[in-house]
Design a protein around this nucleic acid. Structure first.
Lengths: 119, 119
DNA sequence: CTAAAACATAACCCTATGGTTATTAAAAAC
DNA sequence: GTTTTTAATAACCATAGGGTTATGTTTTAG
């Protein structure tokens, strides 16, 4: 079993930056699937699908397992959580600032423009 | 005030797929900053920085505010949370499958190979 | 044994991306 | 009023990305 142990956020987010690949990951949330199943519904050639799989695999987002002539694909939870956690971690601080501003505006009744400007 | 109301995950994740831009967002977790401050520590030209800002703005990840000749930049919490939530939502299902497999392997004592194969 | 199915790889095309230098605009400093 | 500073824009370059067709490989089906 090949396990990717170094998560590269560049690759992970780049892989997520394509709706076809996100669609495949969404499909995989209903359970593992083989590649032709994942390809279902996309109007593109088989090699194009193959490339998308490669991008997802290089990012460590999926795991492929040969089963006869088919390939069973499943999501690599660890990588996906890493991306989520990166955003979630900083969201704490970003939101904190945002809330601070909100609170200030609330307390000083500055959230809306002066009444003379309103309709 | 210009508010981006349609969040495009393609743009958001693409913007996050660059360590320079992630670095700037990390810097912004310590509070809003002007662009030259954000550029600090990056060995690249000023126009390159300018381009990165454009990418972040197009993705709706930041908000720029002209203050004299400087530009104050702050994080757009809403967009950032949207990206986080997309991942977090599906993580529930992916992890559920993962856990189901783990549980099965535990219950059937299949997590490790047969003892004869072990050192 | 031969044909079909499921995938991978190679070679190619076009556009997007990340960087550069040169130039410009506007505000601040002197 | 002239010079600096901050930032944007234009024009360019090289590489990466997403797509294609053509071809090959392996496994299953007939």
């Amino acid at each position: 079993m090949v396990i990717k142990n170094s998560i590269n956020l560049d690759d992970v987010f780049a892989a997520l930056a394509d709706s076809t690949r996100r669609g495949m990951l969404e499909r995989l949330s209903r359970g593992p699937a083989n590649i032709s199943t994942l390809a279902d519904g996309y109007a593109m050639s088989q090699p194009a699908i193959s490339k998308h799989m490669r991008v997802l695999e290089k990012a460590g987002l999926i795991h492929r397992e040969k089963q006869g002539r088919e390939v069973r694909v499943s999501v690599n939870t660890r990588t996906v959580e890493h991306a989520r956690d990166w955003i979630a971690y900083y969201t704490r601080f970003w939101k904190q600032q945002f809330d601070a501003v909100e609170q200030y505006l609330d307390q000083h009744n500055l959230k809306n423009p002066p009444t003379e400007e309103q309709p």
